[in-house]
Computed example of a mutant assay.
Amino acid sequence: MSTTTAAFMSSRRSPEKRGGDLSRRTEFRRQKPRILVVCEGKVTEDQYFNRLAAFFKASSVDVTSCDVEGIGQDPVSVVKHALDKRDRAAQKKGEGYSQVWCVVDVDQHPNLEDAILLAKRNNVRLAISNMCFEIWVLWHFQDHNSYATKDQLVEKIRVHIKNYVKDLPPVFPFGAHEDAKARALRAGSATVGARTNNPGSTVWAVVDAIKRARTPTVRATTPRNITNRHDSKRRN
């Protein structure tokens, strides 16, 4: 066996000499942020975020760790549910969430400010829509920058989604999420976790978080020394 071949085989047997256990480093590189999204609404919001995750996956975006739940309760109950689920997940190896989002409406909830304080104290991110989530849905289709009730927003959505009540159609323009974000920002919805004006929504921040979840925490790299030795062996 030549000296060059022996050195190459030795390097394969001892990856720690080249900067650590490659299998453990590879496992770390493959980790994605785990995101929990808990929604006030059971239908529209749940459908939106689950299908959005599928949309990004179809575009080579891996957000399979995004866990979405719609529980149909008031904002404080939504935040408490998210905290309970986060704490239970943290007790299981590899199941903890790196981000927790609650998606709520201003609507007629008297305890919204309590939910905002509870979320802030517990590092939970809050996305608030005013009057309701329907404004975020509408902004995928058109501009709207004047005060509107939920019923008025539903009527406007029906121009684009026939007979809309709560269910989203099988084909929804998720690709227009950047347009919706631009409209939200123009309406003054730039501060995440705060009550927005009517109309307003900071749901764009949840969408951005899910979109970023496709990126590994550490970029994968090719061990150059091994690659170079393979090339050298072929040339010899």
Rank of each mutant, 00 (worst) to 15 (best):
R195A: 03
R195L: 12
T191L: 15
H144I: 02
F174R: 00
L112C: 08
L118T: 01
V103Y: 05
I116R: 07
K93C: 08
A184K: 05
A184I: 00
Q99H: 13
A180S: 06
P199N: 12
Q99R: 15
W139M: 02
G188P: 14
L185N: 00
L112R: 14
A89C: 10
G188M: 10
R186G: 06
G188R: 09
A182C: 08
A115Q: 11
K181V: 00
V137A: 06
A89L: 15
S129G: 08
V165T: 13
V159C: 14
F141D: 10
A190C: 13
H109G: 05
I157K: 02
N145S: 14
A127K: 14
F174V: 01
N111W: 13
D87E: 08
C132K: 01
V103E: 12
W136S: 03
K181R: 14
A148L: 08
A89S: 13
N197R: 05
K166I: 04
V154D: 12
R121H: 09
L118R: 01
D179C: 12
N123G: 09
E155S: 10
P169N: 05
N122C: 14
Q108V: 09
W136L: 01
Q142H: 12
L112Q: 11
R125W: 15
W139T: 00
P170G: 07
V192T: 09
L168N: 07
K162T: 07
N163R: 03
G188A: 04
L112H: 06
